[in-house]
Amino acid sequence: MSGLSTKRLMKELADIQSKGTPEGIILLSADSMEEWVFLISVLGEETIYKGETFALRMKFGNRYPIDVPEVTFLANEQYQPPLHPHVYSNGHICASILGNEWSPVLNAVAICITMQSMLASNKKKERPEGNDRYVRTAPSNPKLTRWHYDDDTV
């Protein structure tokens, strides 16, 4: 990893350890400076995800924070990606902040907050259109997919 990315991740980790994470967001593992996993749940009574917990994995490349990390919801025996019109069943997420609107002033916790509010504002549990086709042909790294962002407010 480059000096910049290591330094930045160390700082983010120290901030999380000293100040904690926002409610509903827990750092599950940060075993290395390359891959972190957060647990995300949506707060309140109104949400359609009440009682559900999702695992969000971030892989930081050596150009972080200039480049966006690779972010997916885990899809394994223990965790399933949320049913959401922007989240594919393989865990890939279509969100502009994870693509061409990533900015180096954002950080891991900011991504978690964005994902949490994306879930909080959703009213309908459904997969994106064309989910099966996408999942069948998707590259393992969602950053290789050319996303087309129609509406981030859904």
Binding site: P128, E129, R133
Partner: peptide, 27 residues
């Protein structure tokens, strides 16, 4: 929302020798 899935296809073929990719290759 939509994706251009044909620009980002899957990893199905076996690792190993590079194969010839032409217009007959299933994307």
């Amino acid at each position: 929302m939509s994706t251009q899935t044909d620009a980002a296809p899957a990893q199905a073929s076996a690792e190993g020798q590079p194969r010839v990719i032409d217009e007959n290759t299933d994307l």
